[in-house]
Design a protein around this nucleic acid. Structure first.
Lengths: 212, 212
DNA sequence: GTCTATACCGTGATAGAC
DNA sequence: GTCTATCACGGTATAGAC
């Protein structure tokens, strides 16, 4: 029918991404995917092995370039002038914002799906991610050690843990208890908000003097 | 068989709580619950209406007293000496820690389930919670306004939003990317960690001077 | 009112024909 | 590679016994 028809695997990936973003993992059935992709129900299990593995494939297709972008930002930062805490945090935030502005790579909704999945520590990605991207972890750990020399390794680890936690939560846009922001229905996914409120919050906590 | 046999509704509630904590919402089937509770499969839908409503009942049974405990802490705080930011944050943390040490009310695992559910903005509780506990929101909003007079309503709202976000995430113990704490397998649910690292982190970010 | 047995439909997965 | 048929399991609804 359609002359521009990619192969089965690609069609499944594209349709799945859209549906996972719209309805979440549990809310998307293999029958929805295969129907909209115009392929047979069994095709998913043939090409990917399982629904879990399909989700992992959809996820990693976007995450891998994002990780690379962050590492590139780190490279630039470390080779230029003296790095700052704010610059370091932005080296993570900026690629996330750029991805969220690029509909061809999933756009804002995918950033939200990604953050939600990470925050929720989704069963499907638990083991895969934490091991595959140890480079990312090591690089940021070393970078923060340089800009926060006054902190012990423990203290620095905890502050980084909390910081990434609150940033991913902001990207996920879950609003926790939907509290405290009642006056304005402003979304935590808004890029302006991130630069204006999230960045200062995280930086303040990171640079606070160590307690004796 | 068992002479001390509560009524059907209570047995379902108790068994459900344990299974939800152990296996999560999706991982717990009605057939598991009814089998272990020694009741018929249809009993859940008869007494609660649906699996969703059952989860809500399990959840609210523990959350309502927790909210009350927080409000009581706020009462004490406001009537005594001048309240501090640290005292205010502890008025929320302390009841959570006490609940986590009381196995008869669900214990640490329930605090984790609660936090996970809130962080994940679970479908089942989205609407119920945010409306039912507006008192909680208003009280903390007013309390923070007193101890952070230098902030605009917007700025204060965002900082509170981020702070509760990072605290619930810590209680949920998801470890985000399982990063930065590799040396020690310490858990974010550990009470000592909370007082030692989480509290200072949040307080630092809250009390940071407003940017002109 | 309470409880039981059973049927219904949608889910992910899989074996086997083509 | 693809398709059909079938499976076990999930939440839910209901008729009917007590």
């Amino acid at each position: 029918m359609d002359s521009t028809k990619p192969d089965t695997t690609s069609r499944i990936l594209d349709v799945s991404e859209r549906l996972f973003v719209e309805h979440g993992f549990e809310g998307t059935s293999l029958r929805m995917i295969t129907q909209q992709a115009g392929v047979n129900l069994a095709a998913v299990n043939y090409h990917f092995g399982s629904k879990d593995a399909l989700f992992e494939a959809v996820f990693l297709r976007r995450l891998a370039p994002l990780i690379t972008a962050c590492l590139t930002e780190l490279d630039v930062l470390e080779k230029s002038s003296t790095p700052t805490v704010e610059g370091l945090v932005m080296s993570f935030i900026r690629p996330c914002l750029m991805l969220s502005k690029d509909p061809s790579r999933g756009g804002a909704m995918f950033v939200r799906l990604m953050s939600r999945t990470l925050v929720e520590n989704h069963r499907v990605l638990r083991d895969t991610l934490s091991q595959q991207y140890s480079v990312f972890v090591d690089r940021y750990n070393a970078a923060f050690e340089r800009v926060l020399p006054g902190l012990s390794a423990d203290e620095r680890a905890w502050r980084m843990h909390f910081s990434f936690s609150v940033m991913f939560n902001a990207f996920a846009g879950n609003d926790v208890l939907k509290i405290f922001t009642r006056s304005q229905v402003v979304s935590a996914r808004d890029p302006d908000m991130i630069v204006k409120h999230l960045l200062p919050y995280v930086v303040s906590a990171l640079v606070a003097p160590a307690r004796g």
